[in-house]
Amino acid sequence: MVPVTWYIALSAVLFMIGAAGVLTRRNVIVILMSIELMLNSVNINFMAFSYLLGDMTGQIFTIFTITVAAAEVAVALGILIALVRSNKTFNVDEIDALKG
């Protein structure tokens, strides 16, 4: 049987990769994918803890997280389409009308 710490380690690694992707990648689509990676690492965490604790809450939480993540991506892609129509780019470095 795989110890729970391995799951936690996996999720931590996934979270790091995701976070690094958000911070370093320049393509909006890749950034959104990285965020998905982060959310999935959270799901792994919840499932592992749920299994460890013998408690259902974690699994319920996961279902909600997946749903909300889907909604979030839908909104984000909708906005992205509008942006690409006006901006013709996927690169965040070229999205620079707002500066302060």
Binding site: M38, A76, A82, L83, N87
Partner: peptide, 13 residues
């Protein structure tokens, strides 16, 4: 559009 994009990415993050 740009504001929304930035907001949604950082919000999701």
């Amino acid at each position: 559009n740009e504001a929304a994009m930035k907001y949604v990415i950082l919000g999701a993050f």
